[in-house]
Each structure stands twice: as structure tokens, then as C-alpha cells.
Design a protein around this nucleic acid. Structure first.
Lengths: 264, 264
DNA sequence: TATCGGTCGATACACTGTATCGGCCGCGAC
DNA sequence: GTCGCGGCCGATACAGTGTATCGACCGATA
């Protein structure tokens, strides 16, 4: 067991995390490798063929390197996944090119009543767009605590924006609001990208999916054991994912508003 | 794992004498295997050592069978995971022994609103308790669409209960409410069990975790780059997971109520 | 009794993450 | 220039994974 902690190795049990272990200095010539390049290659692989296609061998091969070479920059595959997740958090932080500008969280003009709503909504939408760009991201989201600099930075930006928003009486209210939105976000994105992937895997379009999984569902519902479910499928409005997401988000935001405005 | 003496190796002079002819296998029972037993073994394994400890070999070994034997009952490992998830959904459906009756309407004596709130709240709590019993469950929850009989049954029960509740004007309102609660549930449980696992893995108790991951966080916060975050950690009330879950759930339920109240 | 269909599980294969270690290469000292 | 050395690299190895293949067996049937 060779630990490459470097200088900051404290007492034996305290393993330092990727986030503060410095990237090893770039070797002069034969080293076109860096954490950033590794993560980029891994992200590309995951985007193309899913998270399960990310193996140290394949990532290494994409960089003309053997799998062992990566262990200079990571000490475990889990760290690679953490870095990938934080890379996406970095995209979330950056102003989003392919979307209407809903307002940056750090730019808080500090005026109208609905500010906190706009902040939370914009953050949620940016996260959703990133999750749709990288369908594997949602699977990583709740899996382990996100402690990378970009994740922390996003959290910081939202918190800072909400501290100043009118109507919020204290830290605890802010934390509760952010936490609830976050939990909703994780669940909703996970479900949405899971459905998206199921469609993409079984066939290519939604019709193919309906032909593959649909018959089973139809048979089950036709059997009559789930009348309420059958009614939901038959008579429910099948809203598209974007508006469904928005609707759920509105529910959560309404709930926050109800909690902090006793008088209405 | 049962070694039959004569069978392996010498193929030629096999049936010479009764004495060394292997006991005719005399399998203890015609079929000591069943999907239910397989799933039970897998669940036990996952409860003990986590989801990643569930391998077809280990599950088979727990049942005195080789890995290939299981393929009579499953056609893929993913199916096993689906079955495991649905088994937990079965626990959720059953009335819960080790918990106070959370379905009692005394939580919300208001009257008109009370019914659906109690239904959703009870369902959420049963799910949470199951997720805490099986810390791997939340990782499976949003991962792929839950189409097993128990999952469908639970959905059916909730839908049926809500259709009759006062205040809900139509199917779409019910679906939106259930969907939002579900998404929150998935995210909240995933986060909670992830934290729980992180604590359990790094050490045994929460103090050990704080000593292992805490220093990193402390150092990062002390650097001053995240003042809002630091303030949250320092001055925020660190509520226990159960009441935090309840608080988030209340936010969502309040949002639902706000959405369907005609008075706005 | 001979045949047959279904089942079992040993073996094999491609692949995973990671430990080990011998050799190579460039750098510093003389 | 020459030597020694320390660190990096990656070949090799290992234990483990999910699953395909297939020979051999079992019980039932003609």
C-alpha cells in the first residue's frame, strides 16, 4: 500500500481527499496527462456509453496510457467519479450558453419579493440542464456527499444569495429551503434521466420503448388489479418532462413560501 | 459445493461397484431454490455488507449452489436487483410492526386537508423506515422504473386513497402531488442513507466520521472562501435526520396544499 | 430398455479495480 | 563525463465480476 499523500499526511488514519491533495507536478516531456484531461476523457466516455463504460483501462487508453498511470493522479476509481461529478458542478456554476438567462445567483440586485424564488429556480434549471447533458450525473448526485470545490461553490453562491433575500428570517429557514429543493432535484433528475436512459437503451425513440415495455404494462393494467393506476395512465395528462419538472419545482417553492409567510 | 467422490475425474470405470459410486446425489429436496429464496439471500447479503457485496457467486454460495444455477430463475443480475427492490416495496406495503402508527389522522386534525396529508405522510414514512432497514434500497429507488407488483401495488393504494380524498379536483392534481412527494422521497432518502453509509464505512460512529472528513471541511471553511457555507455550518441548527426529513416532507405537503386550495 | 429433454454446474472468457515490482530515464554530485 | 539514485512507468499478476458454452447427468417417457 503506497500512499502518495505528500506533505499533508496527518496522523495515519486521516486519509486526505482528492480535493486537497495537490495534483502532481507536470513532468516535462512525456506527460500529457493531468487530472483535468483524465476527467475530461472519463466524462466523454460516460456521455457516449454510460457510466458503466468508464473503466480505468478505457480512460487510460483514450489518453494513450496504461491503467496504472492514472494512479498517479487518483488513488481510487471512486475519486475519479467524484471528480467527474464535480466537473459537472463546474458546468452548473458557469453561465449556461444554451438557455435563456434566468439570472445568475451571485448577481443579486436585491429588490423584489420573489428573488429567492428566482435564485432557487435558476439554480435548479441549470442543474437539470447539466443532468440532461450528462445522463449519468444524476446517478452520482445523491450517492455520496459532494464536497468538491465546484459543488461547494454552487452551494455557497445559492446560500449567499438567499441570506440577503427578503422574507428569510434566519439561516435555518434558508437551509431547510435549499435542502428540500435539493432533495427534490436529486429525485426528479434521477427519475427523468433513468426514464430517458431506458428509452435510449431499449430502442431509440419513445415508441420503441412503448412497444417493448408497454405490452407488459398494458397486460398488467388490463388484468384489472390496479384500477386507480389504470385510470391514471388512461385519463391522466401525459405532460412532457420539462413541464412536469417545473410543476414539481413549483410545488416545492410554494411549500417554502407557505412556510415562511405565515400571513400570506 | 457438494463434492461427489467418484464423479469428478475418472469418467471411464464409473459404475463399477456400489461402494464407491457416488451417492446418487439424492438432492435433499427436489428444488430447494426459488426466486423468493434467492432474493432473500441477496437481501441479507446486501443488508450485511452493502449492495456491492451482492454477486451471483456469493448469493449462490449462500444457497449451496453455483452461480449458474441462478440463471434458471433470473436472466440477468439487473433482474435480481429489480426483484430485491420490489421485495422492499413489499415490506413497505405491509403494515409496519416496529413503528408507531404514523397514519393516524391526529397529525393533522384540520379535517378537509387531513386525509390526503395523512395518506402521503404515512406512505413516505413507511418508505423511509424500509430504506433505513435496507440502506441500499435508496440507491435502487430512482435508478430504473419500478414496475414490480409490490411497487405497483403501493402506487395503486396511494392513488386509490387520494382519488377519494376531498380537495383533489382531478387525476392530474393527484399525479402531480404523488410525483412530487415521490421525487422528494427519492432524493431525501438517498442523501440520508448515503450519509449514514459514509459514517458507517469510515468508522463506526459519527465522531469517527467527523474526525476523518471533518478536518478537510474545517480546513476548507477556515480558508474563508465559503463564508455563507461556513456560517451555515457554524450557526445552523444541526437537526437530526428524522426531523429534517419531516421538515422537508412538510414543505412539499404545504406546497401541494397551496396548489389546490381554491382561495390561493 | 432405450431415448430424450431438461437441468446442473465445471470450465472458460472477457473484463474489472488494484498490488507488486523490475527496469528505465533523467537529474544531481563528483 | 560518469556514476548513483530516486522516482515514474507500465507489464504482469491477482482476485473477483457477469455470463456463454457444453458435457454429463437425472428422471420420465415410448
Amino acid at each position: 500500500m503506497v500512499r502518495r499523500d505528500g506533505a499533508d499526511g496527518a496522523a495515519g488514519a486521516a486519509r486526505s481527499s482528492v480535493w486537497e491533495r495537490p495534483e502532481p507536478a507536470a513532468r516535462p516531456a512525456p506527460s500529457p496527462l493531468s487530472r483535468e484531461r483524465i476527467v475530461a476523457a472519463a466524462v466523454e466516455l460516460a456521455d457516449a456509453d454510460g457510466l458503466e463504460a468508464v473503466s480505468l483501462r478505457k480512460v487510460g487508453a483514450a489518453l494513450d496510457a496504461g491503467p496504472m498511470r492514472l494512479y498517479r493522479y487518483l488513488s481510487t476509481k471512486e475519486e475519479l467519479l467524484d471528480l467527474m461529478a464535480d466537473a459537472v458542478h463546474g458546468e452548473i456554476a458557469a453561465p449556461d450558453p444554451d438557455a435563456p438567462d434566468a439570472g445568475a445567483p451571485d448577481a443579486d440586485p436585491g429588490g423584489t419579493d420573489g428573488d429567492w424564488r428566482a435564485v432557487l429556480r435558476a439554480s435548479a434549471h441549470r442543474t437539470r440542464r447539466a443532468a440532461l447533458r450528462h445522463p449519468w450525473f444524476a446517478d452520482l448526485l445523491g450517492g455520496r456527499p459532494g464536497l468538491g470545490p465546484n459543488a461547494l461553490g454552487n452551494r455557497e453562491a445559492v446560500l449567499a444569495a438567499l441570506y440577503g433575500a427578503p422574507g428569510f428570517l434566519g439561516i435555518d429557514a434558508v437551509l431547510r429551503a435549499v435542502g428540500t429543493v435539493d432533495d427534490y432535484l436529486v429525485g426528479a433528475l434521477r427519475r427523468e434521466t433513468a426514464e430517458l436512459r431506458a428509452e435510449r437503451d431499449t430502442g431509440l425513440d419513445k415508441d420503441a420503448w412503448r412497444r417493448s415495455e408497454g405490452p407488459y404494462l398494458s397486460r398488467v393494467l388490463a388484468a384489472g388489479n390496479y384500477p386507480a393506476l389504470a385510470a391514471a395512465v388512461r385519463y391522466g395528462a401525459h405532460t412532457d418532462p420539462a413541464t412536469a419538472f417545473e410543476a414539481g419545482l413549483d410545488v416545492v417553492l410554494d411549500g417554502i413560501a407557505a412556510g415562511l409567510a405565515p400571513g400570506g
